[in-house]
Nucleic acid binder design. Structure first.
Lengths: 340, 340
DNA sequence: CCAATTCCCGCAAACGTTCCCGAAAGTATT
DNA sequence: AATACTTTCGGGAACGTTTGCGGGAATTGG
């Protein structure tokens, strides 16, 4: 079906070695003329090189697997869109696998990727990844693994993440400076580092500004708009006073804002809403949601750099790069603007 | 680095053939005991089978390439999320490549996928795909290729798409039945079938209802919110009367709605806005945008079925399945509701 | 007890490359 | 003119697996 270097060699009366060398541009081991001849024949005969055989021989695939929990968030598909050309420039292709926030599928995907002999894996674990045995196994074997965005504590692998703590801190200070005292926090899934960082920031910012910390204001439920609505209603139904909501993600914030408006609250006059890591959706919605944005391009660049450095040198030092985010104050919390 | 069947064979004093057979469950050529022995040894020694070698030997990769123009739209990432388990059930894995709406990258990605010897390609071409020579080449070679969503006319390959014509038709009738006569159309990129179908539906629905067709009401610009805003402003600045906007996509519609409101128009009282193929964003925005929704799961199911049928039988008949969509009337055009 | 099956298993070739090694010829150095 | 080096090429093993073929041992039937 396909034409191989053997066919070319036969057609030209050369050996496969020479053809192989000509094709891979090993110019100092093959004469100008034969090289040209081979290249032309290859073109004419419609040769496409079989990467399978190359990889088998070289035991490298020049491929990195990107394993993400989902693709529906802007962050992940932007990240993938950014990292692909980045790695392509470095000579690597990517293969994307997704776990749909299901730990079992995450495990099976890791198996799939290593079956495929990818040279490295870029991982953002799913929200309920509990047992990290396969991961530590990979790391022990010095397999190039780098975590991004959602990282796991105590796993001795390189990771690139945004500075959740600082971002959450600034967001909280913004709310506090605009006069809010009863700030609810809709938390994220328990064990991933991001949730913890944000929660710590929440607590610490309150204490820094001498605002009493009330555990009842922290709700942990889900990540969708409907969850956000439920969470705010849960608080209000108990008669708890809330003048600001600090959400784990954009979707929660949108749902909460909607529910608040339905109950007659004005945003931001009565209640401010802010969220971590908004995307374009935050700007399209009314009111537009105040949020911090993750520096996707930078994260992709760093992740690409680190993974190939690990691939090319398994003993490269473990890196933990954190990349600062940018806050965008929008209508949902822009009290100063409104009061002017 | 990795343990192979040779290692297992040596450790057990067997031949590689036997080990291979035991591992691949060829139970009638290997005794119960040896099979058990091999399986245990494999487990114990941490054997993972090298798919590269398998594929080289079998000249199959059990992989289908999914080539999409982008990942940021809900449709594409949903499609991928849906098709992955679908194909996994059929024994295939997927590798995702994206062209970023760039024809050159599309071409190079097709090269990449065929280098990789994927068994088939699922393609949604990018908006400016002009020369289809490589595609017809693939088809001529009986390479399993199926187009989805964005299809190209005259290419003799199987495709699965939604019924753009009918969907656009119903959307238009909905606008007309609610009393609209000056309906603008924000068109899509020229040569892809979808744009054409929608435009035809636009024209035909008007004529069916005896509404004069005014070319000035058709604008073709871009696909983003800002484009939608520009397009509506372009019309209004000329003094053209518009009482409804029929958009190619959701983002245009959101931008247009926003621009209309900024100019003091009420939606839907003064102007209705409707769009093809909205996603959850359409429901989050205010006003929520009336749209038709693509049946992603069904499309993914069909695409999976067709591609493997072609892989397993290259002479399978060419199929062109169209899948009906569902209209959701939302605030942006819900005049009946408002007037009651 | 012999012939015909059946059951296991090993041998070796094959998939399409790459790359080490050596051969032959030419070129430069002494 | 002998030596050393360079250039160009072919031979052949190797990557890890599958699989057709053949053969010896065990089982069966008469």
């Amino acid at each position: 079906m396909y034409v191989t270097i053997v066919d070319i060699a036969n057609a030209l009366g050369l050996s496969t070695s020479t053809v192989s060398r000509a094709l891979s541009g090993d110019s100092k081991n093959v004469s100008r003329e034969t090289e040209k001849m081979v290249l032309e024949a290859a073109e004419r005969m419609g040769y496409v090189r079989n990467e399978l055989a190359v990889n088998l021989r070289k035991s490298r695939t020049m491929t990195v697997g990107v394993l993400v929990p989902e693709l529906s968030t802007d962050f992940y598909n932007n990240f993938i869109a950014q990292i692909q050309p980045e790695l392509q420039n470095l000579g690597y292709r990517i293969i994307v696998a997704l776990s749909n926030e299901d730990e079992r599928r995450e495990r099976s995907n890791i198996g799939l990727l290593s079956d495929f002999r990818v040279d490295g894996i870029l991982l953002s674990c799913c929200s309920n990844t509990a047992n990290t045995d396969i991961l530590s196994d990979l790391i022990r074997k010095k397999f190039p693994l780098v975590c991004f965005d959602r990282t796991i504590k105590g796993l001795g692998c390189s990771c690139v993440r945004s500075d959740d703590y600082k971002a959450a801190f600034f967001l909280m200070e913004h709310l506090i400076y605009s006069g809010r005292r009863h700030i609810a926090h809709f938390a994220g899934p328990g064990h991933i580092r991001n949730s913890e960082d944000r929660l710590h920031a929440y607590v610490n910012t309150l204490s820094k500004h001498g605002i009493p910390y009330d555990p009842a204001l922290i709700v942990q439920h889900g990540l969708n708009p409907s969850d956000g609505a439920e969470e705010i209603n849960f608080l209000l139904d108990q008669g708890i006073t809330v003048d600001a909501v600090f959400c784990f993600n954009e979707m929660q914030a949108i749902g909460a804002a909607d529910a608040l408006q339905k109950r007659g609250f004005r945003i931001p006059e009565d209640v401010s809403v802010a969220s971590m890591y908004g995307t374009t959706v935050s700007t399209l919605v009314k009111p537009a949601i105040t949020s911090v944005e993750k520096p996707v391009e930078k994260m992709a660049k760093e992740a690409a750099r680190i993974i190939v450095s690990r691939i090319e040198n398994p003993d490269a030092p473990v890196e933990d790069v954190v990349i600062p985010s940018q806050m965008y104050i929008r209508e949902s919390s822009d009290i100063v603007f409104k009061s002017v």
